[in-house]
Design a protein around this nucleic acid. Structure first.
Lengths: 252, 252
DNA sequence: TGTTTTATCGTCAGAGAGACGACTAAGATC
DNA sequence: GATCTTAGTCGTCTCTCTGACGATAAAACA
């Protein structure tokens, strides 16, 4: 990055926006922050911010995530899926949005990242957000949605794309474990699938499927009874990243 | 991020790069252009260029594609897959690359697009490219690759990501038809799969699978014998975009 | 008239998924 | 303490889809 001639290329602002998803109370939820400044002051928006001059895109996303949530994100080298660490979350690039008028102030290109996190303590507001919350995506997109609550900028579209990516990605990858704590039961993993897809799955077939897929789950030895009922075996995420054959999402 | 103050955000250059893939002579090929200017003068690179101030990202990709190949790209609304028109190709966003040092001149964020095109007449050089060619991807990545031929910038990585996206996407979508002319036979479609995946498929099982998937293929009435042998029925791409169940790629 | 080439139809066995019965082992309730 | 409730786990049966592969059909070519 030696000399450059600012007149030789049109200058853009580049930001990252985060679609942070988690499962709370059997519901898929997204992290939203309330904007404290114009434009869209008072609207809910996705967390995010400007990319700094000497920072990579994933690096910027990771920094924003830490600033907003305290989460330490983890992304594997290349396009490979991330594993899971005790205080971490999965992070991957989602898509880039650059409609000329998407920000009324100036030309902004935003690179959106998708973060899948285990259930967290309450969000903490940070940066210029006056508050933050976990919003169930069913309230934002479902049949019981409140149309008065539109997101700032094109964040509604970005969030929808992120949710769709998460829904399809847990079909053919082991990413659903990113929504779980480090150790989890088959039932807890099933409830993740049920929440993300908004369906009910047969516990017996689900158990057969996930325990029968090599590398998906590693028994950790312990058992737990935190869900009530018979104690369940505890598992950790195995090394497998792609599920072959995939988990089939029940058709509509 | 309030009023527009040019000093308040770091300026970036934003470009689009194109991974244009086609199938020629039973081989998956990518469009490369030779750079006529520094840096990487004389290296092969992906076609692309700066995004103009008042143009969207997909719009810029589409314009660059037309400038370099004369192709008219088609992208469906939203994240939906594109259909195919007589002179068109499929276009979709691939990923965004923004490592701080990826361009030695300045900070450049490049949004890569993936284009799947039917076999075309020879490429025509355009812009600042002194020439252009279709390079078989096996020469670039396969066992018979020529390591002396590295691509400019991080275009090798971008191309690899594009090829991988194409390979996985034809599994669960009807996108392989984007590599075919408007009317094609089952055998031609099979040769597309074979070229993209680098495998040999059983003609009988393939025929059963594709003709048995509702909406994948529409009989166009005619037949052709352009491949030799018994005349084959001609089909057009049907309306289906996702294949359920998917085409299974034979495991390695 | 074979021979070759490609297309298309059929058959069969095995893998995997959906439906669902049965049993197990803990806490909760009476 | 007996019973109920709640999960978890193992098995069985059927149906669908896939892979392997035999057989036939219709053109070009020798």
């Amino acid at each position: 990055m030696s000399r450059y001639d600012p007149s030789a290329f049109p200058p853009f602002a580049v930001t990252v926006d985060l679609v942070v998803l988690t499962v709370r109370d059997h519901e898929l939820c997204a992290l939203l922050v309330k904007r404290g400044e114009a434009p869209f002051k008072g609207y809910w928006a996705l967390p995010g911010g400007f990319v700094r001059p000497d920072e990579g895109l994933a690096e910027a996303a990771s920094r924003e995530l830490a600033e907003e949530t305290g989460l330490r994100a983890q992304t594997a080298p290349g396009q490979v899926l991330a594993g899971q660490n005790p205080f971490g979350a999965h992070l991957e690039q989602l898509a880039t949005y650059g409609h000329p008028q998407r920000d009324p102030r100036m030309r902004v290109v935003s690179v959106a990242y998708l973060v899948l996190a285990p259930d967290l303590p309450s969000p903490r507001a940070g940066g210029d957000a006056s508050s933050a919350r976990w919003a169930p995506v069913s309230e934002l997109f479902g049949e019981d949605r409140n149309d008065g609550e539109l997101l700032a900028f094109d964040h509604g579209q970005i969030l929808a794309d992120g949710v769709e990516r998460a829904r399809s990605k847990i079909e053919y990858s082991s990413l659903a474990t990113a929504f779980c704590p480090p150790e989890f039961t088959v039932g807890e993993l099933r409830r993740v699938y049920e929440a993300v897809w908004g369906v009910v799955l047969d516990p017996r077939n689900f158990h057969r499927k996930v325990t029968g897929t090599p590398g998906f789950l590693l028994p950790s030895g312990g058992t737990t009874t935190r869900q009530g009922g018979r104690p369940a075996q505890l598992f950790k995420a195995g090394g497998a990243t792609v599920l072959n054959p995939p988990m089939l999402r029940p058709e509509a």
